[in-house]
Design a protein around this nucleic acid. Structure first.
Lengths: 185, 185
DNA sequence: AGAAATACATGACGATGGTCATGCAAAGCG
DNA sequence: CGCTTTGCATGACCATCGTCATGTATTTCT
């Protein structure tokens, strides 16, 4: 084909997207290269024209997705007055829709422990987490970093727990409590 | 051998323990029945005399471990004055040692997302989470359930994040912020 | 138009996965 | 003391895994 390097970049993006969706839905180790490529509309063999290994794909998928989350938060903070920015970030994060659609959920809550076990991905992840904390700091009452840290830890925990419990009322309680931890009422 | 049913129960416990350690360290799907049995000092074949499937083992390992965590919290709350009980629970949870020793870490933070994907395990997990919330409620200032929920969400999130970041100073910041969210200073 | 380059498919490899049928050795019953 | 029960080992099964060598078709450059 040789459909220009543009197309190759597009295909690469499709593979990354497919991988990310499947990783978040089923877990990294439950998804094979085969399934990823099939989901991207390709066959398994071409995979190694795009990534050196599955591990490399995992690292890139996780880090690029979290980096996009950080982008989004920064943009919200830049575009909105502080109080509204906080509400937009927190409400989107704790939205029951976010809980239900694991396949598009935040990497921290869908792949957190799995990523933590892969040393290679941690530096880039750390950078994104730092950016997220700084974005939160800029829109939390008093621009207080402590508050931002409390907001983030609580939000991540709430989403993990809400996905675990088999009772939507309890899930809602956890999400509401986290909302208050983030400084909203 | 036929070393009595007692011994069989002991062996079963060994398998469960080995599975739990390995699951927490490497992830559920990264560990085979082979490795589990070997870790328990046995060979892979006998596994199906103890568990119907690997899935059944996963469910039982996760639920029994979390249930023991709930036991522990309840016991601390029963044995200690409220304020000290809270400190004992929170400090143990947020201890850097807990972060580092993933192989013995709380199931919520080591296997949370993986367990959430397995429908079978969620009812029992929910029960244990409820017990943990109730234990926290009994030792949090004002016996306030809201406070307990905020403590739990924040603690879970803090441990997940602290294991992700590649910078012990940032990890310590996250843990300290969570400690304050839990009502300690 | 022909050649060269390249995106992706086909198909295969060894390793490892979960599962199960079978064998054996030890322990309690008679 | 021998029979039977049973805890666990051996070994094999088929599927799936990650990886890669090779083939093929298509497009751009000369």
């Amino acid at each position: 084909m040789r459909t220009t390097p543009e197309r190759k970049a597009e295909t690469r993006e499709r593979i990354l997207g497919a991988a990310l969706t499947l990783f978040r839905t089923h877990g990294v180790d439950a998804v094979g290269v085969d399934a990823i490529m099939h989901h991207a509309g390709l066959t398994h063999g071409g995979f190694y024209a795009y990534f050196a290994s599955k591990e490399a794909l995992v690292a890139e998928a996780a880090t690029s997705a979290l980096s996009r989350s950080a982008d989004k938060w920064e943009q919200i903070v830049s575009d909105t007055v502080a109080q509204n920015a906080l509400a937009r970030i927190v409400d989107a994060y704790l939205d029951p829709t976010h809980i239900a659609t694991t396949e598009r959920g935040c990497v921290l809550t869908t792949m957190g422990p799995e990523v933590a076990r892969r040393p290679g991905a941690r530096p880039a992840i750390t950078t994104s987490i730092r950016r997220m904390i700084e974005a939160l700091t800029r829109c939390v009452p008093g621009r207080n970093r402590q508050r931002a840290l409390r907001a983030l830890t609580s939000m991540v925990g709430a989403v993990v727990l809400a996905r675990l419990v088999d009772d939507s009322a309890l899930a809602a309680e956890l999400l509401a409590a986290s909302r208050r931890s983030a400084g909203l009422r």
